[in-house]
């Protein structure tokens, strides 16, 4: 649960930033950035996890620096699991945020501009509030997806109960033990309920926000 919360907590702001850049600016390398963001969606999760291991592993280019400077180790820790989840759900968040950013009327930003609002002022007071339904939905769906993340997490952060174990990992482990079917079934039910609740909340919150925005 905390793994997923942290993944969304760190992933979402970055996703908003990337989505904003992709939706508003045309620059060389934009397609490349777009492709990179969407890569985890099409890549087998195990490959993503393995790539993370290469980059953020203790001997990896980023991982070694993190270890040397901050003493932070990502591999096989719950932080690492969060990172894996964040990367996996990043495309979902970016897509959702970007779609809602694109529905924001640029004329409103122009209006804010003529009223004396600078770039960040416009972003925080006009653009983001108006895109909030998409941001929220993106966050909730990403959270639910994180809870179910399997491939990248097991590769990058392993399967440590109480630390990096996500729901499917727990279910998988339970199934490995003779007589664990009961536990697996219970966990599956929990998973089902969480997914359903997540979708319902996102639907409801989206509607409420849209109503507040007068759509």
């Amino acid at each position: 649960m905390t793994v997923a919360a942290r993944a969304v907590g760190f992933g979402l702001p970055l996703a908003v930033l990337i989505a904003w850049v992709l939706a508003r600016y045309r620059f060389p390398g934009r397609s490349l950035l777009n492709a990179l963001v969407h890569l985890p969606l099409v890549l087998p999760p195990v490959v993503t996890g393995w790539l993370l291991l290469i980059i953020f592993g203790i001997r990896g280019p980023v991982g070694s620096l993190l270890d040397a400077w901050f003493g932070v180790r990502l591999v096989f820790t719950s932080t690492g699991a969060s990172l894996a989840c964040a990367v996996m759900t990043f495309p979902v968040m970016v897509r959702s945020v970007r779609l809602s950013l694109e529905t924001v009327d640029p004329g409103l930003e122009l209006a804010a501009r003529t009223l004396g609002a600078g770039r960040l002022d416009r972003l925080f007071n006009i653009t983001l509030p108006l895109a909030s339904p998409g941001i929220l939905v993106g966050g909730i769906v990403a959270y639910a997806t994180c809870l179910g993340e399997f491939g990248a997490v097991i590769t990058f952060a392993a399967n440590i109960p109480g630390e990096t174990q996500t729901l499917p990992l727990a279910i998988y482990s339970a199934l490995q033990i003779p007589g664990g079917e009961k536990q697996a079934a219970d966990l599956s039910l929990v998973s089902l309920a969480l997914a359903l609740i997540g979708l319902l909340i996102s639907e409801w919150a989206g509607k409420r926000l849209n109503a507040a925005l007068g759509r």
Binding site: G107, L110, P129
Partner: peptide
């Protein structure tokens, strides 16, 4: 410089 648009552009939120 104030600008009044054809379609008002009031902030809906």
């Amino acid at each position: 410089v104030g600008l009044v648009f054809q379609d008002s552009k009031l902030f809906p939120h």
